[in-house]
């Protein structure tokens, strides 16, 4: 459903986008995802200085996107509602995605025919014991031309492309960036804690992040 508010700007609503079924081998893991409240209704507005005001309502698009995505990536997947304790869920891993930032640009700002959308997600992963083992920021981008789809449809299309970009990035790099596939092995291994070993300090555990990888590469 697209809304047009004449010369005062425009309001675009994203109707339940879907990503295609990915051509990948699933990871043999039992995974849950817990979503923040903002994934149920996300609205972003931007006022172009001296000109029009634009808004985009993603609605439940983020929830739908990640549910489809993780359902395709893992052999067992479920959405966890509420504040259930991870240790009671019998999962290999719990994923907590969130939105760090959302921006878009319109032709009157960029002096081009393009609408562009940037979304920065953050993927946190907890192991079976509820310990955070990864905190992975990802930046996604989508662009669409106004001459083809018209203003509202172009912004909508750019948002969908940005979400597809995020999905593609997660599929390609999630295991490499977070090591999530090892969590299934770690949970299944019967490791008895040694009496003379100090208990693991969550604050000292290696947090696998893209930023950490980048500094190592430098």
């Amino acid at each position: 459903m697209l809304g047009m508010a004449g010369c005062a700007g425009s309001s675009v609503k994203l109707e339940n986008p879907s990503i295609p079924e990915p051509l990948i081998a699933q990871l043999p893991l039992k995974v849950g995802a817990r979503y923040p409240e903002v994934f149920d209704s996300f609205v972003h507005e931007e006022q172009v200085i001296g000109k029009e005001k634009w808004s985009i309502d993603l609605g439940r698009a983020n929830r739908i996107l990640f549910t489809q995505l993780f359902g395709s990536m893992f052999t067992e997947f479920s959405v966890i509602e509420g504040d259930a304790d991870v240790r009671d869920l019998g999962l290999d891993a719990l994923i907590e995605p969130s939105i760090d930032a959302f921006e878009f640009s319109v032709p009157s700002q960029s002096q081009t025919d393009d609408f562009a959308v940037w979304i920065r997600y953050r993927i946190k992963i907890l192991d079976a014991d509820g310990v955070q083992v990864a905190n992975w920021p990802i930046a996604a981008y989508g662009k669409s031309q106004t001459t083809t789809f018209g203003g509202d449809a172009a912004l909508q299309r750019a948002a969908v492309l940005a979400m597809r970009d995020a999905a593609a990035l997660i599929i390609l790099q999630m295991d490499k960036a977070t090591g999530i596939s090892k969590l299934g092995d770690a949970k299944n291994a019967n490791v008895e804690p040694q009496p003379d070993m100090p208990p693991a300090d969550p604050d000292q555990m290696n947090l696998l992040t893209t930023a950490a990888k980048e500094s190592h590469d430098e």
């Binding site: 990503i19 295609p20 079924e21 990915p22 051509l23 990948i24 081998a25 981008y141 492309l161 597809r164 970009d165 999905a167 593609a168 990035l169 599929i171 390609l172």
Partner: peptide, 29 residues
């Protein structure tokens, strides 16, 4: 592009033919 998702997205599409053997070795492609 939809049938081969995510291998021909703007971010992931091979930029050179050197990437084609790797692409074709992916499951289902």
């Amino acid at each position: 592009v939809d049938a081969l998702f995510p291998w021909f997205e703007p971010r992931t599409a091979p930029a050179e033919t050197k990437g084609l053997p790797t692409l074709m070795s992916r499951p289902g492609v």
